[in-house]
Design a protein around this nucleic acid. Sequence first.
DNA 1: AATGAACTTGCAACATTGTTGCATTTGACA
DNA 2: TGTCAAATGCAACAATGTTGCAAGTTCATT
Lengths: 133, 133
Amino acid sequence: MKAIDILNQHNLKRTSCREGLLDVLIEAQRPISENQIRALLPGNYDRTTFYRSFKTLEENNIIHKIVVDSQFVTYALANEITHRHNHAHFYCHECHKVQCLDEVPVMSTPLPEGYEALEKEVIIKGICPECHA
Amino acid sequence: MKAIDILNQHNLKRTSCREGLLDVLIEAQRPISENQIRALLPGNYDRTTFYRSFKTLEENNIIHKIVVDSQFVTYALANEITHRHNHAHFYCHECHKVQCLDEVPVMSTPLPEGYEALEKEVIIKGICPECHA
DNA sequence: AATGAACTTGCAACATTGTTGCATTTGACA
DNA sequence: TGTCAAATGCAACAATGTTGCAAGTTCATT
Ligand SMILES: [Mn+2]
Ligand SMILES: [Mn+2]
Ligand SMILES: [Zn+2]
Ligand SMILES: [Zn+2]
């Protein structure tokens, strides 16, 4: 799926920032941060524009955001799986890469009386297979 | 338990910043942010000192940190329960309060081959009992 | 009580993440 | 191609966090 098609599908204007962002995220195939995206992106966009693009793309379920820590936030393409079921994320302390664990469903947690859960974020931190050698 | 006793127990120097921080967190009985702590704290400490205190207290398992979002981070006292088993946190979209769900254990997630989990953060967002009326 | 080493603090500077208002530019459609 | 709603760039600001270094504080020992 090309960036342009995705934007058209969602009736979003095709701007070079959005298109570039999406291209980079499609290419990356995993969650990356604003700075990482910026390094891979040809154009030079204002940070405000970047964040407004993130917001729009997230509201349209085209991308999703993973807050690893307050100082390390990543964005990744959404897909049918991630759009439908919630999924966990993994952060590797060694290589500092973030992964969508699409195949790891987020179990529903029984909450005490009166709590209404709307979203649930699960982030697991440890050592990834590549660094585990 | 008094702040001073906690510091002594952990062989930490008794400084007014640490003592004040702890007093506020003991009083609050729930996770609050740096700014909220600061508003409740008599003295006026440099932010660097604040953060160094947070770090020290966290390393000694006296407090723990809850990243609700990259722009909203809270700190709470740790207790025997939170120290021993991992627990989930709840954020209310209405009142913006954060709660430690001590009684809600974090289920161990079966990970794909090769992943070694060291930590796991679970944050549930929704509406709390008080706001659910 | 005074001493002194080790620890803590305050300040300056910087980095990451994110938002709002407003003037200007641009994309999409007629 | 012209129009207008939408997107962008810029300025300013806020929350969160770190590092280096000089100055101050704690606390054990004398
Ligand atoms: Mn994901
Ligand atoms: Mn907690
Ligand atoms: Zn790794
Ligand atoms: Zn509430």
